[in-house]
């Protein structure tokens, strides 16, 4: 299988160091003196993250891809606006119009990090909320359980897969 080459790998030690440094620069407001505290903090954050999550991705597969991010961000923003409008309109009318219930979905994403992102973004999609992940099956609470959620979820999964350069053909686990 030919894997798409990662443009940007955030998962290696150097990538993480850069990420935490950028984070510190934003938090401390870019004052040079702040690096007296910032440098040790960034180093220990890098060490802790390598210690807690040593998997740097099998041959860099878990790296986030810039192209995927460009596609993911507008999709995510649009969906989150739609989600907010949807729930606001449902709630603000005189009689609340909901038919809550559960549905389940079998994710095909293999990468654990991609799954976490998928679970979180489900909660921001209109009308869905990821409730549980058990035995490779996501239980989803829907505000309107009469709708078929399958197509929307499959599309979201494809976008998340593109974000991580993951292929959906790998099958469940």
């Amino acid at each position: 299988m030919i894997r798409p080459r990662s443009l940007h790998r955030f998962m290696g030690p150097l990538g993480r160091l850069g990420l935490f440094s950028a984070l510190w620069a934003v938090l401390a407001g870019g004052s040079p003196a702040s690096w007296i505290i910032g440098a040790p903090t960034v180093l220990s954050a890098t060490w802790a993250s390598l210690r807690l999550h040593p998997d740097t991705g099998r041959d860099g597969r878990a790296g986030m891809r810039l192209l995927g991010l460009v596609r993911f961000t507008p999709f995510f923003l649009l969906q989150s606006i739609r989600g907010g409008l949807d729930v606001a309109l449902r709630v603000l009318r005189p009689r609340v119009r909901i038919h809550p219930g559960f549905q389940s979905y079998r994710p095909r994403l293999g990468d654990p990090l991609a799954r976490v992102v998928f679970l979180d973004t489900i909660s921001l999609l209109p009308g869905t909320l990821s409730a549980d992940l058990r035995d490779g099956l996501i239980h989803i609470h829907a505000l309107d359980a009469r709708d078929d959620l399958e197509p929307g979820l499959a599309r979201l999964e494809a976008v998340v897969a593109a974000l991580f350069g993951d292929s959906l053909e790998s099958g469940p686990r």
């Binding site: 989150s80 709630v91 909320l129």
Partner: peptide, 24 residues
Amino acid sequence: AGTVGLLRLPDLYSRLHALTKADN
């Protein structure tokens, strides 16, 4: 809208919907 949802919706899961989406 988020707060109205939190107060009006009948069950816990629906309230969570209102909370996450409207607030963000």
